[in-house]
Nucleic acid binder design. Structure first.
Lengths: 133, 133
DNA sequence: CTGTATCCTTCTGGATACTG
DNA sequence: CAGTATCCAGAAGGATACAG
């Protein structure tokens, strides 16, 4: 592939396209619930109600919508058991599992620099406050 | 740090917090323009108008807002030259540069699996279409 | 149990006009 | 040149009720 922004490459054409791809991925998994779901399904298959109960604050609607998106992209597999009452299980696909690694890398970055970012924000906000007085 | 979802760890408490951190980072850089800006500033300092001209489709408003956010987090440094007409330059900070690596990893994943995801979507949509007939 | 349908609020981002 | 101020449209997401 073309690297994200290879040194020496003018940030146009290829780079623009690559950037766009990254962006689409980030926007998909960067929405409010996708990553939470992927995290929950990291170790085991889970049922709909189980996810709904254990994920704090998610609405039934968003749980369904997010699962459908992930299923559509092939990151999650949905298995319906024809029983009464119905039983539906969700699991990561192999593709879904491969996503864990890069996301984890970003997670490490976030954890490593969280404090630094918070400090930056406080400094910035303090400066802005002085500016308005 | 606590890993994103360490094997053997129940996905609660620490894991939930870690997940939340990753989520916040993804939502920040996963918005419509942050990543594009970071990509553009990868190799060199750029001026406001330059960014505005070279980034296809961005509005002046969103360029300002996004740059301010990145500046607030300490990912981008804003330098004002007291000249007439004014000249303002933007550059990645060291923190901003460290973000390039994990984002690039995600970019590689996106590029590697783009086709697979597109195929998954086509298959899924085709199936959904049949289902509604 | 596992959803779908509807309504409503909030947030994001674009267009446009104006300013130091 | 480098913004700020407004207004507005559309998307995202929550609450609630209903259905197979």
């Amino acid at each position: 592939m073309t690297t994200f922004f290879p040194p020496g490459t003018a940030p146009t054409e290829d780079a623009e396209r690559a950037c766009h791809q990254v962006l689409k991925v980030l926007q998909r998994i960067g929405d409010k619930w996708s990553l939470v779901l992927i995290g929950r399904l990291r170790h085991r298959t889970m049922r709909f109600g189980e996810l709904h109960r254990e994920i704090t604050g998610i609405s039934q609607r968003m749980l369904t919508l997010t699962l459908r998106q992930l299923e559509r992209d092939g990151l999650v597999r949905r298995t319906v058991h024809a029983t009464v009452p119905p039983k539906v299980e969700y699991a990561l696909t192999e593709l879904g599992v491969t996503l864990l690694e890069p996301v984890h890398a970003l997670g490490l970055w976030a954890a490593e620099h969280r404090r630094e970012i918070e400090d930056n924000r406080e400094r910035y906000d303090a400066g802005a406050e002085r500016g308005t007085r």
